[in-house]
């Protein structure tokens, strides 16, 4: 039941032979060896697997790869330009906004999505945009500070 499909990830089109029902997350992590999107729940409840689908943050752990074959997929690897970090990535470093860092992908990708839509987002808008992403270390206060640093 393998089929061949083309997937556009971080600007590059990949030709893959796989089960079209495979969740996008497994394809990104295993077939394309990307580390950005992470497995957290497989239930779309925690946001660790967040990617941008046509620029909007969406969980990738349940959506079948076949469904997104015509969309632009961006992972955490794709938001920096070469060595130059995205301002949000830099802000997370500057604010030391991480403990274990496992949720960072979800937080960063959601923040990119929020700021693309609302560049001057207020506290409530940022929180709403990050609501789907869980952090267990309790680093959320730092994430908020880092994102606001970019808006300033």
């Amino acid at each position: 039941m393998k089929t061949t499909l083309h997937l556009k990830v971080n600007g590059t089109t990949h030709t893959l032979s796989l089960n079209p029902a495979t969740p996008l997350l497994y394809v990104l992590r295993n077939d394309l060896q990307l580390n950005g999107p992470r497995f957290g729940c497989g239930l779309q409840q925690c946001g660790a697997c967040m990617v941008l689908l046509d620029g909007k943050a969406q969980p990738s752990c349940m959506i079948a790869v076949d469904v997104v074959k015509n969309q632009e997929i961006t992972t955490l690897e794709g938001i920096s330009s070469g060595d130059r970090l995205h301002p949000l990535q830099q802000a997370f470093i500057d604010e030391q906004a991480a403990q274990c860092g496992y949720c960072l992908n979800g937080m960063l990708m959601s923040a990119v999505s929020v700021l693309q839509e609302t560049p001057e987002a207020d506290d409530q808008t940022i929180r709403e945009g990050l609501e789907r992403v869980l952090c267990r270390c309790g680093t959320q206060a730092r994430f908020l500070r880092a994102i606001k640093r970019v808006i300033r």
């Binding site: 060896q33 580390n35 955490l76 997370f92 030391q96 991480a98 960072l104």
Partner: peptide, 23 residues
């Protein structure tokens, strides 16, 4: 002093860092 943790840069750059990233 407040010294930056170098692994945070690896994390934001999505470099392999966790046991989950071993291939």
């Amino acid at each position: 002093k407040s010294i930056h943790r170098p692994e945070i840069e690896k994390m934001v750059r999505a470099e392999a860092w966790y046991v989950q990233d071993i291939r």
